Simulated assay, not measured.
Amino acid sequence: MTTPGRTASQAGDLIRQFNHDTITTGDGWQYPPNAYDAIGSLAYLVRMLPQAIEQTIRPVQRTHEQGRVTVDGGGDPMAAVAELRGAVAQAVTLAQHLSAAVDHMHSAASPLGLDTRGLPEFEG
Rank of each mutant, 00 (worst) to 15 (best):
M1A: 15
T3V: 10
T3L: 07
A8T: 05
G12I: 03
G12Y: 02
G12L: 06
G12V: 04
D13H: 05
L14W: 14
L14H: 07
I15Q: 09
Q17P: 04
F18Q: 05
H20A: 14
H20W: 13
T22R: 15
T24C: 14
T24L: 15
G28P: 03
W29G: 08
Y31M: 00
P32Y: 00
P32L: 01
P33R: 03
P33I: 01
A35K: 00
D37E: 02
D37R: 03
D37I: 07
I39W: 01
I39H: 01
I39R: 02
S41F: 11
S41Y: 06
L42T: 08
Y44M: 05
R47G: 04
R47W: 02
L49E: 13
P50E: 02
I53A: 09
E54M: 02
I57H: 06
R58L: 09
E65W: 04
G67L: 07
G67Q: 05
V69R: 06
V69P: 01
G74N: 06
D76W: 08
P77F: 03
P77H: 10
P77R: 12
M78V: 12
A79G: 02
E83K: 15
L84N: 07
L84F: 09
V88P: 09
V88R: 15
A89C: 01
A91K: 14
V92Q: 07
V92T: 05
T93Q: 08
T93H: 09
L94N: 14
L94Q: 15
Q96P: 06
Q96L: 03
L98P: 04
A100E: 06
A100I: 02
A100C: 00
H106A: 11
A108L: 07
L112Q: 10
G113P: 01
L114K: 03
L114R: 01
D115S: 01
D115K: 09
T116I: 08
R117D: 04
R117T: 10
G118Y: 13
L119I: 13
E121W: 12
E121Y: 06
E121I: 11
F122W: 12
E123R: 11
E123T: 08
E123K: 11
G124T: 06
